[in-house]
Design a protein around this nucleic acid. Structure first.
Lengths: 121, 121
DNA sequence: TGTATATGTGAACACATGCTCATATACTCA
DNA sequence: TGAGTATATGAGCATGTGTTCACATATACA
């Protein structure tokens, strides 16, 4: 029944292993999760943002610090921190005129660790 | 000494927490790793590629299967599989005219798992 | 209140990227 | 060998994105 539905949706023309397509459909990740996962990985997929996150693993830093470290403009850093904030990867703490940024949780570090394992094999 | 060097490199103008910048420099990830990590995350950061990887978690599939499942052209799938191959995220096995694609190792699944944890909190 | 510092943000531009289309390659079978 | 199927790939186009520049906001301090 389910199989029939999917078959008709696919026009049944070039599908070689129908049962695998059906299975893939059943195990499909919800669209919302796909979008959010993609956004997360894409956000971590920019060298500038990646360096920012890596630096924040050690200690919280202000925009000036990060800009000096990366040798890029403070505006560029601020733009990227905005992206990281939206994705809930970093959070900030104000102390006077200075905003200290930090990683929100351990997930970023763990993702780094896993990804480095993949690269170094 | 080290501190002095870094200070001069930074022009010493707007750096607020010099010791943190120095520390960040010491803990810096090698450029090659940064580039490869970014490439890896960026590659996983596209919805189409992400769906492909997710589907391959379950079973190996050929290009036709994936195209049918995603409801996109086989050419688009082939282009994306090429990217995934370059990043060593998928590998293929030929059986006659058909190429079966699979995940290379468990890293992708683990990355998904961690990333989903981050999203769902 | 005025000035300086720290950060945020919109517009614009240069560049990267995913898809489509046409075509090429690789394999099967008659 | 020729036709058909499965996949790969280059060119071109539309869209997305990171940076810069100019300016806005927020806080500190005199």
């Amino acid at each position: 029944m389910q199989l029939q539905t999917v078959e008709s949706e696919l026009c049944g023309c070039r599908c070689i292993h129908e049962e695998r397509v059906v299975q893939a459909n059943l195990n499909q990740l919800p669209d919302i999760d796909v979008e959010e996962l993609a956004r997360l990985f894409k956000t971590m997929g920019d060298p500038t943002r990646l360096r920012i996150l890596w630096a924040l693993k050690e200690s919280e830093m202000c925009v000036c610090d990060i800009a000096a470290f990366l040798k890029v403009s403070e505006s560029a850093v601020s733009h990227q921190l905005r992206n990281l904030r939206i994705l809930t990867l970093v959070a900030s703490r104000r102390e006077g005129a200075i905003l200290y940024y930090r990683l929100v949780d351990e997930h970023v570090s763990l993702l780094f660790q896993l990804a480095l394992e993949h690269i170094h094999e």
